[in-house]
Design a protein around this nucleic acid. Structure first.
Lengths: 237, 237
DNA sequence: TCGTGTGATTTGTATAGACTAATATAGACA
DNA sequence: TGTCTATATTAGTCTATACAAATCACACGA
């Protein structure tokens, strides 16, 4: 059941699967480039657009990273958690056809606690960048994001203003393949994750989910939030 | 800033935005069909493939539902959870290039409790279909799914076997626009346990499923959450 | 040695067309 | 009335091609 099926499944799907298999077989390492579309199209005996679709979808799935003019690379593996998928809140709101807006509540440098130092693999007391941002959808606060960033990954993080661009967007520009900046976003490959997420449900209430994961331990906690009130996401990442 | 830009943004993006705007403006109601690709391509003055890409991406984003041979319909608005996105577990495992497998632990008809009746909008004691399935990734149990289905939505639910097809896939075929079925899924990332997840089904309430795994046994539990009340997902997770 | 620019490479987007497969519809028929 | 059938409609896939835009590699010159 390689690729010479009766074409029960579409060709681009077969190609996706084949590439996934080869990635799983470590034919290409993490961050390494896979062959260009031209070559793949020739090898698979299809048009370039067919390969393009396969690569596009794998990119959207987070398996690959593509850079125009450069090539297509194997993305770092996503963390295994995930039923929880962190999405770009701005994009998501735009998809709903609503107005996105955000306010920067805090932007500072803080010394790393013992726990945080362990998480980031740095020394206790070393500086960390911290930003607290509230994201709004049609002027309604939807999500509070409390983010800690390793300065080594994004040295100019504090200089950002985050009016139009979300931290995620900025970090993915600064260090697209580094992976280390995913730390607070619950996506990070290989290393431990820590995320504070605030999720609104409907008018009457807000549910806050706080998740911490280190090594084998996972702890989560939920609270009820009332709209229009200020909530502090406290410590202990 | 309609669509006669300098083509700073690609055409298919403009089309996506335009359609989103018109959906937001209720030009087409929920479940209603939007014009076919042919028509849209003519109206926008682009090739059909360009419209196709826009519609594909909106479908992937959950804004539209497409049925070959029938048409493209406005999908019911998604639950307002924002950060939590329920994905098809089988697809996700396939994306990782791993082997997906599942076992049906239970398949039965149960009388609806008072809470469940309220949730589904039926009478207390009315029959509900229930399935409990464990999903495996490379033979490792990854997720337990305890699902309740309104028989009116999927009368032949119990006749399914769910070997290759997940319930989600089946239900999305049977009742793509109904939205009446819902379940809560939790996942087992580490060794001992698990995840807690709250998903709102209808306006007034949230359903919580708690799943625990110890060695060979897997136990799950669902509760009903009433808005305005505080729920604690206990630690020691 | 160090830039610098120029051409080659590679992805992003778009086109026009073709065929397939699923669905819906209308009409023929019993 | 209900059922089957032929036909039209619609989305799914694929091809072959073209040009734009970002990036890269390398030869060249100061």
């Amino acid at each position: 059941m390689t690729s010479a099926e009766k074409s029960a499944t579409p060709r681009y799907q077969q190609i996706k699967q084949d590439l996934l298999d080869r990635i799983a077989a470590k034919e290409w390492g993490i961050g390494e480039a896979i062959p260009p579309e031209q070559t793949l199209a020739r090898d698979f005996g299809v048009a370039r657009m067919t390969v393009n679709r396969a690569l596009q979808e794998l990119t959207q799935a987070g398996v690959l990273v593509r850079r125009r003019g450069s090539g297509t690379y194997v993305a770092p593996p996503r963390v295994h958690t995930s039923l929880l998928q962190i999405r770009n809140i701005a994009d998501e709101i735009a998809e709903r056809g609503h107005r996105y807006d955000s306010a920067l509540l805090r932007l500072e440098s803080v010394p790393a606690s013992a726990d945080q130092a362990l998480l980031f693999g740095i020394e206790t007391g070393a500086p960390l960048f911290r930003s607290v941002i509230v994201h709004r959808e049609n002027d309604v606060p939807i999500q509070v994001e409390d983010r800690l960033v390793n300065p080594e990954v994004a040295p100019h993080y504090l200089a950002q203003r985050f009016k139009t661009q979300t931290p995620s967007a900025y970090l993915s520009m600064v260090a697209p393949l580094a992976g280390a900046h995913y730390t607070v976003e619950a996506r990070l490959p290989g290393r431990e994750i820590a995320a504070h997420l605030a999720i609104s449900t409907k008018d009457p209430c807000l549910v806050v989910l706080r998740t911490t994961r280190t090594e084998d331990r996972v702890a989560s906690q939920a609270e009820l939030w009332h709209p229009g009130q200020l909530y502090q996401l406290t410590g202990g990442v």
